[in-house]
Computed example of a mutant assay.
Amino acid sequence: MDKDGRKLLSRQQRKAKVNALIAQIAAYPYWEKVLTELGLQKAPQISPNLAELMQQAAQRGKGAGESEEHRKLKMFVKNNPHVISVNRNCRSATEHPLISGDRLDVLFSNKDLLVAVEVKSHVSDEADLMRGLFQCVKYQAVLEAELRSKLAIGEVRTVLVSTRELTPELLRVKNILGVEFIELPRLHE
């Protein structure tokens, strides 16, 4: 896209164009020939348990309440916005309600920016982290829709924060979905 074209498109329109281009690139039928010609090997495929992991994440739904570790991590992020590169002049709230009926663990906001944070502590398993990745995708879409419905202009950012490292499989899903992830050290009292 040229500079003039980018100026005419909204952030969402640019993102949609880039995603369409990525899909076209991924659908190119001759990648194996290209890799062979360049002397490269095909990337390893996602392991067979990915479908099962996604199924487990889908069955989780809403939890039975938050753990103490989750609450501590949520409050740490709220009180330390710099860990996710948010300026202190943003307002912050926990359990912020969305029109979709969801609640954000942490929301930072000012007149030009909304940053939604989903937190997963070290007690979260792989399925819960997978669910967190998809929650971020949903929160991004819902917040952008809320802004549009109010005819407001602003940037929306969603971040998954965890004190657990992503497995290679989850890291690959994170990259495919374009979710921002920040790993923090485990909190100690």
Rank of each mutant, 00 (worst) to 15 (best):
W31H: 15
E68G: 11
E68N: 07
S67V: 04
C136Q: 02
G61P: 01
V18I: 15
I46P: 08
G65M: 01
A93H: 07
N110L: 06
S47C: 00
N80R: 05
V117Y: 02
A127K: 04
V119N: 03
Q56K: 10
E68S: 15
K17C: 13
I84K: 02
A27F: 08
D102A: 14
V34Q: 14
R14W: 06
S85W: 01
N79L: 10
S124G: 06
D102I: 00
I25N: 12
P44M: 00
P44I: 00
K150T: 03
Q13W: 09
G61W: 01
K17F: 12
V123G: 04
D105P: 06
E144Y: 06
L107K: 09
A27V: 07
K120Y: 04
W31M: 10
N79T: 02
A26P: 10
E144Q: 15
S67P: 07
K150H: 11
Q140C: 05
K120W: 00
S100G: 00
E37N: 15
P44R: 04
R88F: 09
L133S: 10
A51E: 07
T36C: 09
V142M: 03
E37D: 14
L40K: 11
R60N: 11
I99Y: 09
Q45M: 09
V106M: 02
G65N: 02
Q55R: 10
V106K: 05
I99T: 14
G63T: 06
N87H: 04
Q41D: 11
E118H: 01
R14A: 11
F134M: 07
I22K: 15
Q41N: 13
L50T: 09
L147T: 05
V77L: 04
L104D: 03
A127Q: 05
L40D: 04
I153Y: 02
V123W: 02
W31P: 14
S100W: 06
Q140I: 00
A116P: 01
T94S: 02
Q41W: 02
V106E: 05
L73M: 02
S67Q: 06
L133E: 04
I25S: 11
D128Q: 14
I84E: 08
S121T: 01
A26W: 13
L53P: 10
E126S: 13
V83W: 07
L107D: 01
G132S: 03
L133F: 09
A93L: 05
C136R: 05
F108G: 03
Q45G: 12
E37K: 13
D105K: 07
K15P: 11
L50P: 12
S100K: 01
I46R: 11
H122W: 05
M54Q: 09
K74A: 03
A23Q: 15
I46N: 08
V117R: 02
P29T: 09
C90Y: 07
L21M: 15
Q45R: 12
M130F: 02
R103A: 03
V83L: 05
S92T: 09
N80Q: 09
G61I: 03
V34H: 12
E95F: 00
D112N: 10
V123T: 12
A27G: 13
A152E: 12
A152V: 00
V137H: 03
E32Y: 08
A145D: 10
E95T: 00
L98A: 08
V34W: 08
E37G: 14
E32K: 12
S92W: 07
N79K: 06
E144T: 10
